[in-house]
């Protein structure tokens, strides 16, 4: 054991470094926590309409969401991201809200596609005009449906947003 040198640290990202051989991270707690969260976004397996097909393609081998640490979880209790993939009908809206309410903090919502962003072309009696009517949406992804690349872009935007958070780990609610 000697003096810890700046050169011994392996820089992971701005402000987060790894000490080889010690299995330890050095950096401000905010940065470390945000780094961990941004690298393990687990969305709940939940599709609403045709956008869900694109979401599945984004998860499969060609686009491979796993390389971002994004793994679909079949339970909202193990998930921290809800992708609104498709048309939100008014009958489905309370169910979506319930899924969201079952997710533990921290949790994020992605509105995927025109329908989830604004109701899309379905300005009708049965369709919710945008997921933000009853959920706090973090990222909006336009497109009808968005290509898997667009979904990946949206998730990267979410990662950037997570990395800018301050003190979400100790907030008393």
């Amino acid at each position: 054991m000697g003096q810890l040198n700046e050169n011994d640290l392996v820089k992971i990202k701005d402000g987060v470094s790894f000490i080889p051989g010690a299995s330890a991270l050095v950096g401000p707690l905010n940065r470390i926590i945000n780094w961990g969260r941004a690298g393990s976004i687990w969305p709940v397996t939940f599709g609403l309409a045709c956008c869900a097909i694109e979401m599945m393609v984004a998860g499969s081998s060609t686009n491979d969401l796993d390389r971002f640490g994004i793994i679909f979880r079949a339970s909202p209790r193990q998930a921290d991201c809800l992708i609104l993939a498709g048309t939100i009908t008014k009958k489905m809206a309370p169910v979506i809200r319930r899924v969201y309410d079952q997710m533990p903090e921290p949790r994020y919502v992605l509105a995927m596609g025109s329908c989830a962003c604004s109701g899309g072309l379905f300005d009708t009696y049965a369709v919710v005009q945008g997921g933000d009517n009853f959920l706090p949406v973090d990222v909006y992804i336009p497109g009808c449906p968005p290509r898997p690349e667009a979904l990946i872009e949206g998730l990267i935007t979410l990662q950037k947003k997570i990395n800018q958070e301050q003190g979400r780990w100790s907030q008393l609610v």
């Binding site: 905010n30 809206a93 309370p94 809200r97 309410d101 903090e105 921290p106 009517n133 009853f134 959920l135 706090p136 800018q164 958070e165 301050q166 003190g167 979400r168 780990w169 100790s170 907030q171 008393l172 609610v173």
Partner: peptide
């Protein structure tokens, strides 16, 4: 549902709200 989500909005995380640094 809209009333309920308005009521639950107070529990949402807001980026302006800072915790212990």
């Amino acid at each position: 549902l809209k009333e309920k989500s308005l009521e639950l909005r107070t529990f949402d995380y807001r980026s302006s709200q800072k915790g212990n640094e």
